[in-house]
């Protein structure tokens, strides 16, 4: 068994991800630069990715990590669109 499963409770990952997600929401609300708002959305997506990967490892189920790949696909497509739109 991995050392991280024994020594870090899954709740800690939940709290860390919630905090990062809320920082992303805060950034979306206070920044007015559209590109920085997109970056804050990336931060929110990453918070969710971290939690999916943590649960995937704790339950030793690969489906969570596959889900992270699809979220990364969406984030990359979004970045490509944003780049074309503002340049």
């Amino acid at each position: 068994m991995l050392d991280v499963i024994k020594s870090v409770p899954i709740e800690y990952y939940v709290w860390l991800s919630s905090l990062l997600f809320c920082i992303g929401v805060f950034g979306v609300l206070i920044r007015r630069n559209a590109i920085v708002v997109l970056m804050c959305i990336e931060l929110m997506l990453n918070a969710v990715n971290l939690l999916l990967a943590a649960f995937s490892t704790y339950l030793s189920d690969a489906q969570g990590q596959i889900m992270v790949f699809f979220i990364m696909v969406v984030a990359a497509a979004e970045a490509a669109w944003g780049w074309a739109f503002w340049s």
């Binding site: 991995l2 649960f55 490892t57 704790y58 339950l59 030793s60 690969a62």
Partner: peptide, 21 residues
């Protein structure tokens, strides 16, 4: 969550992920 008694530490490696994907 109930962590399975025998977790597979190889779950995040590329071989396993490629198979599932």
């Amino acid at each position: 969550i109930t962590v399975p008694a025998e977790t597979n530490p190889q779950v995040g490696l590329v071989q396993n992920l490629g198979k599932v994907l």
